[in-house]
Design a protein around this nucleic acid. Sequence first.
DNA 1: AATGAATGAGAATTCATTCAT
DNA 2: GATGAATGAATTCTCATTCAT
Lengths: 209, 209, 209, 209
Amino acid sequence: MRPESSPSGRKRNPIIEEARRRQIVDAAIETVAEVGYAQASLARIAQRAQTSKSVVSYHFAGKDELLEQVVTQIYADSWAFIEPRLAAQSSAAGKLAAYIESNIAYMHARRAHLLAVVAVVGNHRSADGRLRFEPSADESVLTLLGEILRTGQRDGEFRDFDPRLVAVTVSQAIIGVLGAWVADPTVDPTSYAAELVTLFDRATRSQGD
Amino acid sequence: MRPESSPSGRKRNPIIEEARRRQIVDAAIETVAEVGYAQASLARIAQRAQTSKSVVSYHFAGKDELLEQVVTQIYADSWAFIEPRLAAQSSAAGKLAAYIESNIAYMHARRAHLLAVVAVVGNHRSADGRLRFEPSADESVLTLLGEILRTGQRDGEFRDFDPRLVAVTVSQAIIGVLGAWVADPTVDPTSYAAELVTLFDRATRSQGD
Amino acid sequence: MRPESSPSGRKRNPIIEEARRRQIVDAAIETVAEVGYAQASLARIAQRAQTSKSVVSYHFAGKDELLEQVVTQIYADSWAFIEPRLAAQSSAAGKLAAYIESNIAYMHARRAHLLAVVAVVGNHRSADGRLRFEPSADESVLTLLGEILRTGQRDGEFRDFDPRLVAVTVSQAIIGVLGAWVADPTVDPTSYAAELVTLFDRATRSQGD
Amino acid sequence: MRPESSPSGRKRNPIIEEARRRQIVDAAIETVAEVGYAQASLARIAQRAQTSKSVVSYHFAGKDELLEQVVTQIYADSWAFIEPRLAAQSSAAGKLAAYIESNIAYMHARRAHLLAVVAVVGNHRSADGRLRFEPSADESVLTLLGEILRTGQRDGEFRDFDPRLVAVTVSQAIIGVLGAWVADPTVDPTSYAAELVTLFDRATRSQGD
DNA sequence: AATGAATGAGAATTCATTCAT
DNA sequence: GATGAATGAATTCTCATTCAT
C-alpha cells in the first residue's frame, strides 16, 4: 500500500519517489516484453531495474499494483500520443484513419510497450480468477471508436453497419499488423497501416462516395 | 484454425493409452480456459482429470508436451470442421466467407477450446524464452488465407491489396468477434460473422462488382 | 488438501503416510517447545524432522494444519492418559483429585508437549485474527470439570460455588504448577499436585465434612 | 502486577521525548492486544501510533526495547493501582483478598493491558532463545504474595501449606478469571473475584476459624 | 502400467533495521 | 530531532519433476 503510511497526505518526496516508481515500471515493461507474463517474476523485474525485490515491494503494494501501473502507464502514454492526432481531423473517416495510423506508429516506436500490454491485459487476473482488464481491446477504446463510427454514419460518411463490430475489427486489425511486425521485423507497420486505412475506408464508406 | 494432422506421440498400449491422453488433454483445455495459462498447474489439471500429477507426468513427457498437445488437438479438430466447408465453395469470395463463418461457428460451440488456444499460443514458451507457437494467428492459417486471397485476385474477384495484410486482418477479426462474445455473452457470433463477411466483401472485391 | 487429490478416499498408504506425519508433528512439538511459537518456522521444524520444507508442505496443507495437528494430537494423547484414571474414581472429590494429579503427571513426563500446547493455543490465529483454539484452557476441559463439580454439589460432597469459576481455577492452577516446574526444575510437580488436591479439597468440600 | 518503579530509558528532550515514547508504547499495547504477539510488527504498531516505522526505531533501540517498555509500563501502572489497596489492609487475609480484587479490577478496566502483558511475557525472547520475562507470573509478584501468606501463617491466620504453591495458584486463578472474561464478555470479573476470595479463604484459613 | 512420496528451485511478501539527509 | 528510502534475510507456499515400488 505504498511506502509507509505517513499520517499526512499521499506521496512524501514526489521527486525521488516518482522517478523510482517509473524506473521500476519501465523495468517491468521490458521484463514482461522479453520473457512473457508467466515468467516475469518480481526477482527478474528487480534485477533489470538494478535493485532488489524488496525495493520493488517498498514502492508498490505488490505485483498486482505494479502490473496495473504497467497497463495504466502505457494506456496514458499512448493516449497522449494519439489524442492530438485524432483532434487534428474533422471528418469521421479522417479520425478513423488517424486512429489506425497513430496507434500503429506509437507501438512501432515502442515494441516493449506493445508486448507488455498485450501480455498483461491478456493474463493478469484478480484473486477471484477473473481478468483484471478488458480482454484484448479495452472498453474505452471501443467506446471511442464506436462514437467516431456512429458520427460518421449520422453524417452520411459511412454506410450502415454495426458500429461495435467494426470497432472490434479495427482494434484487432491494428493488433494484427503489430503482431505481424513483431513476428517478422521485415514487415513495415507504416505501409501496413496505410493499407489498413484503405481497407477500412472501402469497408465502411457509404455507397455513393 | 490450422490445417495439419494430429498424430505424433509414441504409444505403449494404443487402446487405453490414447483414451487416457485424450482425457488429460481435455482436462488441460478446460483448466487453461478457466484459470488462464499462468495458473494452470499440473496439479490443477490432474485434479480436473480426476487423477494425480504423477499420472499426467507418466503419460506426457512434461508440461510442455501436454500443452503442445492441447494446441495440436484443437488445431486438428477445428481443421476437420472447417475443411469440408471450405471445399464446398468454388469462388474465392465464397471460400473467404466460409472460412470466417466456419471458424466462428466452431469456436462458438467450443468456448473452452477458444480460450485455451489463445492462452497457450500467446504464452507458451520454450526454454530459450521464445514463443513455441506463432503468436495470435499461426503461419499455416495465413498461408491458406493468403492463397485464397491471391487466387481471388488472379481471377479478378478481388481488388489489388497485400494478401498477407488482409489475411492477418481477417484472422484477427475472427478472434475479435469471438473475444467480444466471450467478454459479453449476449453478443451473437453468428450475426457478427455475417457482418464480417459483408465487411470483408466490400473491403476486398474489385471495383466494378 | 492432503498429499495429492486421489480420486478415491482419504489416505493412500496409511502405514508410511501416518508415520511421516507423526514424525513431523513431533518435530513441530519439539521446535515450538524450544524456540517458541513466533520463531517456529517451517524451515526449523523441517530441519528438526531431518527433512526439507517441501516434505512438510507435502504432508500438511500448510502451517495451520500442522499446528492444529500439534494441539489435536496432544489433547488426544493426554486424554488417553487421563480418562482411565478419572474412570477409576467413583466420588466427585476422587475424580477431581485424579484430574489434577493425572494432568500434572502426564505433562511432567512430557515437558515439550506442555510448552507446545500452551504456546500454540495461546498464539495460533486464523486469517481473521481470532485465536483458533480456546484461550489457555479449552472448553471441553471446562465442561468436563464443570460436570464433576456439579455432580459433587448434587451429591452433597461439595459446597455451593460457581462451578465454572472453580473449573477455570483448577485448570489454571494445574498450569501454574507446571509453569513453576518449567521455570524452576527443582520444583517437584508431584508433591505440588498433592498440595493442590488438598487446597481444592478444602476450597470445595461442604461444611459438615 | 509487579512492584517496581518505571524509570530507566535515557532521555534527550525529556518533555516531548517522553510523550512520544508513551504514545508509541500505548500503540504497541493496543496492537499486541488486538493481533497477538507474533503479528505485532513495527509497521502495524507505527500505523496505529499514526507514525512511520523509522520514528519508532528512532525512539527505541529496537523492537526488543519497545516490548520491554510495554511490560515495564503495565507492571508499574498496575502496581500503582494495587499498592494503596494492599496497604489499606492490616490482616494477611485482608491483603490477600485486596490483592485478588484489585488485580482483577485493574485489568477489568484495561482489557488491552491484560492481553498485551500476557502475550509479551509469554512470548518475548532474547537472542539466545530464552524468555525475557518470567513465564506467566513474575517472580516479584510471587515474592510479594509469598510474604503475605507467610505472615498469615506466622500470625495463625492461615493453615500450614507451601506458600509458593499457593502464591502460584492465586496468581494463576486471577489470570483464569480474566481469561474467562476475555473469552466470554458476559462473565462478570467482579463477582468472580468475590468468589475467588471465598475460595482461597476456605483453602487457606486455619482449621478452627 | 501406474502412483505415492519426495524434493529442490523459485515464487511473493513481510520484516526489523540502517542510513543519508 | 525526525524520516523517507533502501535493504537483505527470512517467511510460507506452489511448482514440475523424479524415483522406488
